[in-house]
């Protein structure tokens, strides 16, 4: 007998869950208020860094361990993934930040000026020391979401945009909208910018450590760069502020003055769904299984959560990140 399931929510959690279930032969109905991934989903605004080791600076251990499989999962779906690593740098007076970051993470080596210039010629003379996380990767989140969406019909997934009767168990992947059922879920506001800086060539994400404003830039190709991201304890999903834009743009300018002449293509804002330990998890409530709390780790952790959801439904395997049994 064919297993059936309904996935509610078409952001990164919903699309990954639907993909993983459908790949294992489950007849999936995906419900989202829009036909295609777009700005209504928090993952639309993501950076797309697959950086489990860097995230280990503050994230709990499961993020570092489970996140390492993310790049392979995305490649397995046919999504282009750039495996070029991550660079971490700091301005001269914040040198200790780099030492602290190095102590709290693993999977990196230290580059001197020449080593950095070899990887990123445009950063030559800007920094005399950098950490290089060679095993990390990045992808273009919007392209990845669109790609998953477009593949689902071939996997037999049905789409519904309105209210619909559930077929089989429901995987609720609505992100922050599921606060009605998950009282401990909160929003963490993030603001980002997209710039076009054709004069600058960066081949991989660069993180600039700063005691007040942690900052990263992710290349999207063709001279387009995503700058991210603020992290404010607020569920507000609108109203990117001048202060946040100033912080992000100042950091970009400090990273490389060529950003001064860049064109601002976009200023984005949304709120990430997070549980109190900032770890994602599945949570069962009767017939509904929530897949939520991906915080700033949507593209990094959604594949692992999707696998757990499918293991639970297809093989009755209790997921590692289930309810409160971890962290």
């Amino acid at each position: 007998m064919t297993l059936r399931a309904t996935v509610v929510g078409g952001g990164v959690a919903g699309l990954c869950t639907a993909t993983e279930l459908a790949s294992r032969g489950v007849a999936v109905t995906l419900v989202d208020r829009e036909k295609r991934p777009g700005p209504h989903a928090c993952s639309w605004w993501a950076g797309g860094m697959l950086a489990p080791f860097c995230e280990g600076e503050t994230a709990e251990e499961p993020v570092v361990r489970l996140g390492q499989a993310a790049a392979g999962w995305w490649e397995g779906q046919g999504v282009p993934v750039t495996r070029a690593g991550t660079l971490v740098v700091t301005l001269g007076r914040d040198r200790q930040e780099l030492d602290r970051f190095a102590r709290r993470t693993h999977g990196h080596c230290t580059l001197d000026r020449a080593g950095l210039a070899e990887l990123e010629p445009d950063l030559d003379d800007r920094f005399d020391r950098a950490l290089f996380f060679s095993e990390e990767a990045h992808l273009d989140p919007r392209r990845a979401l669109g790609h998953l969406r477009d593949r689902l019909p071939a996997l037999g997934v049905q789409f519904r945009t309105g209210k619909t009767d559930a077929h089989g168990p429901v995987f609720d992947c609505r992100g922050l909208a599921a606060r009605d059922a998950l009282p401990d879920l909160r929003g963490v506001k993030g603001e980002m910018l997209v710039l076009h800086a054709p004069d600058l060539r960066l081949g991989r994400p660069v993180r600039l450590l700063h005691p007040r404003w942690p900052f990263y830039v992710v290349p999207r190709g063709d001279g387009v760069y995503m700058l991210g991201a603020t992290q404010i304890e607020s569920g507000e999903r609108v109203r990117p502020t001048v202060r946040s834009a100033l912080e992000l743009l100042s950091a970009a300018y400090a990273l490389h003055p060529a950003f001064g002449e860049a064109e601002i293509l976009e200023i984005g804002v949304d709120a990430r769904p997070a549980f109190p330990d900032n770890l994602p998890r599945l949570r069962q409530q009767g017939e509904v299984i929530h897949v939520n709390g991906l915080f700033r780790h949507g593209f990094l952790m959604a594949p692992a959560l999707a696998r757990m959801a499918a293991d639970l439904l297809c093989n009755n395997v209790r997921p590692e990140l289930m309810n409160e049994d971890h962290g």
């Binding site: 879920l185 929003g187 404010i232 507000e236 609108v238």
Partner: peptide, 16 residues
């Protein structure tokens, strides 16, 4: 100051 937002959006964190 920064968390307040338009409609008391920081409520969840303040409850914590």
């Amino acid at each position: 100051r920064r968390e307040a937002g338009g409609e008391r959006a920081g409520t969840a964190f303040w409850d914590l």
